[in-house]
Amino acid sequence: MQRVLMIIPAYNEEKSILSVVENIKKVKTKDFMLDYIVVNDGSKDKTREVLIKNKLNFIDLPCNLGIGGAVQTGYKYAFYHDYDIAIQFDGDNQHDASFIPDLVTNIKKGNDLVIGSRFVGDLSEFKSSKLRRMGINLLSGIIKICTGVKIYDVTSGYRACNKKLISYFANNYPVDYPEPDSLVQVLKMKYKVREIPVIMHKRKTGKSSINGFKSIYYMIKVILAIIIADISTKGDD
């Protein structure tokens, strides 16, 4: 039976983290074992207290590393404990846990990375604001040019990967805004990537890490990161 680890990065998620874990525990698993690990990324609110009080399985980082550093900690944990599949899952209730079996099934079909996507299929009603979608489309276009593969939801943090990629991510993972960057690396190395439709919800608590003026800085930084990843990742060609 395959062992699956949910990696849940949490920064200041005291209000949502418990329900996120409870939703994961409710998922019915027939042909795989589902574990989770919350990575508390130096939260300044009571996230840590909530984790201890409810006896959740968590790693407590001594200082804040940013989303990429927190997620990579999860991959390292998965690598050390020899998990077969790792799934990234946001700590703010945006992702719907009922799609976990879908992601696992698609990994079992031979895909290396499976992305839960808002933009394929008609499942997700929440598709982010217009401006943000424009940004995502632009990034998607650039990634298509760099790698030749069209991925629609390039910033989705709801992703599953197999053992090969767990060991790769444990050692190579971008620190900030990591999704598009790591996606390019994976595509350049000719791993099989697939997008499947999922439902995403509007966040109820907390704030998005990308807002206002930061979004322009974000776009510039991500585009640069994509180009650098494109040039510096060695593909088979």
């Binding site: 968590f58 790693i59 407590d60 980082l61 001594p62 590393l65 390292k76 944990y77």
Partner: peptide, 13 residues
């Protein structure tokens, strides 16, 4: 420092 922080976190666990 990032690597150390991650390893310390995992070790604490």
């Amino acid at each position: 420092i990032t690597t150390l922080t991650q390893e310390v976190g995992i070790l604490k666990k």
